[in-house]
Design a protein around this nucleic acid. Structure first.
Lengths: 120, 120
DNA sequence: GCAGAAAGTTAAATTAGATTAACTTTTTCT
DNA sequence: AGAAAAAGTTAATCTAATTTAACTTTCTGC
């Protein structure tokens, strides 16, 4: 499945919010990603069409098994890049900003190579 | 000056083409970046408005001093990331693809840290 | 020097992702 | 329970970057 950058951001945000609060509300995602409520709404439509989340009107949002699997992959990539950046001396603040962007454009091959760099 | 990803791609393409052929034509840029002629045309309008290129109707395209300075910066970033990727074992093909995307999203701080990694 | 090809330009339409404004539904608090 | 606030939804609009189609200008080769 080919996901757009923004869809990856949304699914990752849901995954992170899921771990903090039992049910994930649209407004939390909007706050987390600094986007408007309608932007979240449209993105949730999209995620639902792709079978990545479950949601009925005015209810909470839940990842499906498929959605959670994907979210975990995105998040793992995020953490790998983040840790690599810290390791080479980037500040936490910048590492967080940069890895959010890099995670959407980096190839699997490069991810595999980075994996060997981290912790070494 | 805050440049969009696509504008950075165009200016970088001009910089590279400038070194191969004396005058840079719109069609060469279109071929290089795999975009349509009108896309190049609009981008050139934009670059001209920003004072980064010189161009009169139906003539060749030239970087201004300001444009060349910027192009060099973008290109240097490109090569730094490319070389780093090779160094960690990424193939040339993938390194080229990935660095083209990473160069548009990476911070100056991370670039500085990467610089210390390359060649070491 | 002129016809056809190549390059450049213009206009209109498309796409993805967002926004604001206005409205509806749900929640919360007294 | 009902009013006010909060959250969700819908509609209309915007922007950036692109495309196709059609047209104009320039170049090239006979």
């Amino acid at each position: 499945m080919q996901l757009s950058k923004s869809i990856e951001d949304y699914i990752e945000a849901i995954y992170i919010l899921e771990q903090e609060s039992k049910t994930v509300k649209s407004i939390q995602i909007a706050t987390q990603l600094s986007v408007s409520k309608p932007a979240v709404h449209k993105a949730m439509d999209e995620l639902q069409k792709k079978g990545l989340i479950e949601k009925t009107s005015y209810s909470g949002i839940e990842l499906t098994a498929k959605g959670r699997k994907l979210a975990k992959e995105v998040y793992a990539k995020h953490m790998l890049i983040y840790n690599f950046l810290l390791q080479i001396g980037v500040s936490k603040e910048t590492a967080e900003i940069d890895c959010c962007k890099i995670e959407h454009v980096i190839s699997e091959e490069t991810i595999a190579c980075l994996k060997k760099q981290v912790h070494s």
